[in-house]
Design a protein around this nucleic acid. Sequence first.
RNA 1: GCGCUCGUGCCGCAACUGGAAGACGGACCGGCUUGAGGAGCCGGGGGUUGAGGGUUCGAAUCCCUCCGAGCGCACCA
Length: 954
Amino acid sequence: MEQSTAAAAGDEPAHRYGAALARGIEARWQAYWAENGTFEAPNPTGTLKGHVSEAKHSFIMDMFPYPSGSGVHVGHPLGYIATDVFARYQRMNGFTVLHTLGFDAFGLPAEQHAVATGEHPRTSTEAAIANYRRQLGRIGFGHDPRRSITTIDPAYYRWTQWIFLQIFNSWYDTRRESARPISELIAEFESGARPTPDGRGWAELSGIERDELLGEYRLAYAKEVSVNWCPGLGTVLANEEVTADGRSERGNFPVFKSKLKQWMMRITAYGDRLISDLEPLDWPEAIKLQQRNWIGRSEGARVDFPVDGHAITVFTTRPDTLFGATYMVLAPEHDLVDAVVPAAWPEGTPEAWRGGAATPGEAVTAYRAMAAAKSDVDRQADAKTKTGVFTGAYATNPVSGEQVPVFIADYVLMGYGTGAIMAVPAHDTRDFAFARAFGLPMRCVVEPTDGRGEDVATWDDAFASYDALIVNSANAEVSLNGLGVVEAKARITQWLTEKGIGEGTVNFRLRDWLFSRQRYWGEPFPVVYDEEGVLHALPESMLPVELPEVEDFSPRTFDPDDAKTEPETPLSRNADWVNVTLDLGDGRGPQRYRRETNTMPNWAGSCWYELRYIDPDDENAVVDPVNERYWMGPDSGKPNGGVDLYIGGAEHAVLHLLYSRFWHKVLFDLGYVSSKEPFHKLFNQGMITADVYRDARGFPVPAAEVEERGGKYYWDGAEVFREAGKMGKSLKNSVSPDDFCDTYGADTLRVYEMSMGPLEVSKPWDTKAVSGAVRFLQRVWRNVVDEETGLPRVTESEPDAETLRAAHQAVAGVAEDIAGLRFNTAIAKLIVLNNHLTKLDAVPRQTAETLVLALAPFAPHLAEELWAKLGHSGTLTFEPYPVADPRYLVADEVTCVVQVQGKVRDKIQVAPDISEDALKELALATDGAQRALDGRAVRTVIVRAPKLVNIVPA
RNA sequence: GCGCUCGUGCCGCAACUGGAAGACGGACCGGCUUGAGGAGCCGGGGGUUGAGGGUUCGAAUCCCUCCGAGCGCACCA
């Protein structure tokens, strides 16, 4: 492509729109926009105060990038171009528009780079950001540079830490369904309005005891929990960061369960609201569904099974099958296991239940050791074969009074429900498999509807249907027999509640969010521990807690397969920073403290950046409430408020989007924001894929150098093989926007990417196909400018009727398409108009101006230049977007299709406002219709004036 | 295994809410322009809408079955 440009340059007209001309135009207009602050968005108040439109405002956002050291390829800016087109369109429609782009810059890659090269993460990250800004700057985005925050800026993470403190200093009041300040909870304890667990007065509790008690309530808390420990990365991970096969999403290392004291966020408190508030959001259904599934709300009941003076509580979604519960299973780690295990095996314990051990205690210990040593991968692989061991204890089924054996087995998970189940083998596939493996009894309590009968011994699998009647389920006080599942659930739940042995409850699959990482390159926690080990939040005046400059910032990593290792935080190696004397202003005076040495996960900075975009340099508040209300406050179009449009990849469906919703809701509860939701409209752009070419050994070869001959592909003389894939450096098929802009120009990149297909679908990059965009822009230019002289070549005469209709039709369609984010069809309509103009001897000025303005959001540099050539001064950024006049949309004549029984038999030219009767008459009279009818009588005639008539013969 | 998307010329993809299958772009073919080439100009061909069945006056569109691709979840009680 470079060669042809160079070769053609010699004899091309001086003012042809080519790469060189585009480059000059683009540089000039980018400089103009920067100098004039064209895209600086005003706020109602504060440091960025300016004139704002009260009624029309639009906050448009992209999911901000993590600046990778290798820079961007042409796939990255797709979404940014889309938001930019939309934002420019909105400006031309009189909206005050907030659009900017910041950087999510804490994270593991910079740290790994640091380990490899010794370069400080801040140095490499800032260099990567500078490179991103340069690369993206060439594409000509209308971003407000003053609002482009980076998460690693202490002035930014000061507020990340501040929000952490708000969350830490809050608890969730389930009665009010809202977060409240922890001080209000303490007041309840102090006054005695809320008793402490053991009944002692608040004043009698030690510092540590108060600390622990409040930790049960705080929305951010440190606790010894079972976590995902990844030795290969040297850090623990959130559930969301672990793949289904038990490996780290980043790096693909094995992940093990380990008990460690870690920071957690009580996102589970918001489970209900995170589901119910999804409803009014304008999000893709698939993403809503993923969030609902991830949160996993299920309604059921808690039921107590008495065992030896204790009560084991189970969670079940099928309390209607309680009479069929013939054994129980606890998770191996369940707290009550030790309490119920007897010294010796009960009389008659089958050999298979003993796990080969002499006593129940030994069996339990051995099984626990085996379960703990299993990685999630093993557990996954073994899912089909059920393992477990009898604890030696029997529980009482509370409805049947039967004694049922209590097992431990790793198919019951400690983290879900109560970590204990009642097993109903006849009606649950997992319990069925376990019961068969251990020879446990089964009872049919749901009448099979598939003719298999009630004799469980003859079954091959469990009968798990909800659409059946309950049988064999009655005691002296309650009977479920003959009821449907739904009524049976209600009946038994009521009975359990009355007897005080159970209650209806809601359970979530969602777990609390593991919020600490053992890394250097993240936000420090703004908390310290005193010499007794009591936790203290730092006062706001001490924020930000800055990362110390250290010699060794690398995380300590281990043999990826060694589960027995423990994390070591890089910050803990810094005694000077860790051990400090501070006066926290709590009346205790200066004291010795130890800093928290974990850091926050890299999701922290992205949990709230939309708020800082609004007020990037507010020193007094996370965001000024007036500005927040203006940009994000609820209104008729968005009942829960939020950003007007948020575009990004679907890969953040549950991570970023769930975490940021959670933080936003806490801030809402505490009164800092007026919006309940951060993002009103969400749109997922597809990926730009690219062909990958591999040689015979399977190694990728440079895609740009591959030649095609006769349907086969060759590189360096040898045949290579094409496959579909992602675009990326390692696959040697990356196309850089720098090269693209050098060869074609930024406007061509923008137009090509927007014309490739619907924004939401993934589509392959095809450098050959770019010439369509090149030709289009060249023709636009040529329709307005004389290629020899560079002067405008428009005529001052009025456009003819056909041209008027073409222009107004295009404008009507384009506006509708942009508003609906259908950029590919919008460009198609602009091309149609332009192709029409190409046929004219000279383009009327009026139509040229319409075309230039309509095209401006897609090719802003070219449009600005043409607008200037047409004699206007300044930018067209705020010129009104062309509006179609309905008068010009109607054609003089339209073609009406005449069908007989759905098949086209004739066509007639009619007036667009023809009456149904007249049209029917004309249609019946056509030769085609008569020929098709062939004398048959007419039963009905369907008339869709003026475009279609369908005649149905008798 | 369960759930959600999606299958339209050679390719990327249009087609309103069920109303003429193909907009727009690429590729291809022909002509013009050019010393030649080209991303210049004008014109052209090409489909049983994945398969089968159903609803309807009429189906790419709605329903069912099957085939194929992608994504999500996966012992969640």
